[in-house]
Amino acid sequence: MARYTPPEQSKIGQLIDVVVLLGLSLGALFVPLRMGLSGAAKVVATPVENPTWETLGQTAVQAAQYEALGYTPATAHDLILARFDYSFEWSSLILMAVLIIGYFVIMLRLSEQEYKDVINEKFGE
């Protein structure tokens, strides 16, 4: 097989490649975050008016620890009552599975293509 000689990349080209990669990776983290789509947000489903340790569902021992940490029922309200929402659509779970499996399949296929070239050039046809 003919030896493949890669082209030299110009300085500008190198810079553009870095910027593209950087933009993509920052986008992956900050776009969901900024759009408020990150599911991480816990929400307080049922707020309690004028909370006491009892109405927050805390036992005496638990309340004592909160007080030792410097909390009052009012300041601990959000911390104690916030919960994740684990209700999910099966369709989105399936979408996720398809996405992950698809990603690995595509990647392994393209890798295999490239790998054959590497082996042929390294060890000869």
Binding site: S25, A28, L37, G39, A40, F84, L99, Y103, I106, M107
Partner: peptide, 21 residues
């Protein structure tokens, strides 16, 4: 996926795009 599904999907999409690139 439970609680952080959006990040998971964003992350995978990122790797798909980057792989094609």
């Amino acid at each position: 996926f439970l609680g952080y599904g959006t990040q998971l999907i964003a992350m995978i999409l990122f790797y798909v795009v980057v792989s094609l690139w």
